[in-house]
Design a protein around this nucleic acid. Sequence first.
DNA 1: ACGACCATGTAAAACGTTACATGATTTA
DNA 2: TAAATCATGTAACGTTTTACATGGTCGT
Lengths: 183, 183
Amino acid sequence: MKRENKTKYVILGALSYAPMSGYDIRKWISQVTLPFWSESDGQIYPTLAELVKGQFVKREIVNSLGKRIKKVYQITPSGYQLLKEWLGVTPCPTWVRNEFLLKLFLGKNLAKQENIKHLQDRLAEINKTIEKYKSVVSHIKITHQNDKESFYWLLSLNYGIAHCHAEQVWCTDSLNSILNDKG
Amino acid sequence: MKRENKTKYVILGALSYAPMSGYDIRKWISQVTLPFWSESDGQIYPTLAELVKGQFVKREIVNSLGKRIKKVYQITPSGYQLLKEWLGVTPCPTWVRNEFLLKLFLGKNLAKQENIKHLQDRLAEINKTIEKYKSVVSHIKITHQNDKESFYWLLSLNYGIAHCHAEQVWCTDSLNSILNDKG
DNA sequence: ACGACCATGTAAAACGTTACATGATTTA
DNA sequence: TAAATCATGTAACGTTTTACATGGTCGT
């Protein structure tokens, strides 16, 4: 399978909700797609330029007030078609690099206390993440009442929450089993 | 935070269990660290060469029979120390690129039937993955009875299984909620 | 004799991150 | 008036993948 840069699809995805500036798209990706995706900043503007060249998005220069330049991008029909085609294709396998789990896997090389600390840190982080997801859910439920967009957003957030809950339980169980382990 | 290539630690981790050839390490990484890590093949041999240069591993040439060259690597005390130091450091945040979730998130752009298909495919894949993990667990329990190494391996596998179960439930719930959704 | 797997490696190209450069506008 | 945020972008560097090159050994 050939590799393919997905940045353009993420950008088109963002623009399928609303016209945005490059800056908006950067923010959108880092905030909204947080539990399952990321793009590096340095790739947004070059990819936008490519998309403009291919006429998948069109650019409008907005001078809101004063000298500040702002470029707002809008998805075109052919951009929308490109997005839809990609969305229909069976997704590539998920890519994970979980350093925490790698370290725990290699735990026999480490003192018990240090493994426990990693697990406790992780548990604390998970708790924070769950709170964050839940607050996003509340926010969406208030601002988007039963519309089609928010339906799929909430599904994705539920995914994140479900995984966090599972990890919470697993962390607790693992801590107990390490503590009960003689050694 | 500076980026750092983790390949050397994964290799040292592999060698902390047993001396291995480059080929063995490749296999080990792709099979054993499957639910939480991956390295690309093209990085193993160059990294091994560096590790030899830094005296973190030592190389022995084994000519088992005939002309076949085989190089077996063994971790040295300083390699072991390097590994332990890294293991003790708080892990970097997990890196995920879940194309499936990204596509579902953007689901309002797609026909209901296509979103359903993605979810069903995913469910089928998850079921297979669970079976695989479970068979690895049984295998470990037979070949490593209560030793310290297998303890942490089993913890990691439990993590994978717990996440899969959570995803199974979430997939089923999501399918139902799409089907019940008028639209 | 064929395919699967063992075994070592390299090179090119694509990808991704970080840091930097520049400056405007808003908010405390 | 300082800090945060809006806003656009590039360059350098490091990482990762893919494809390739080469050949041995084992099972059927």
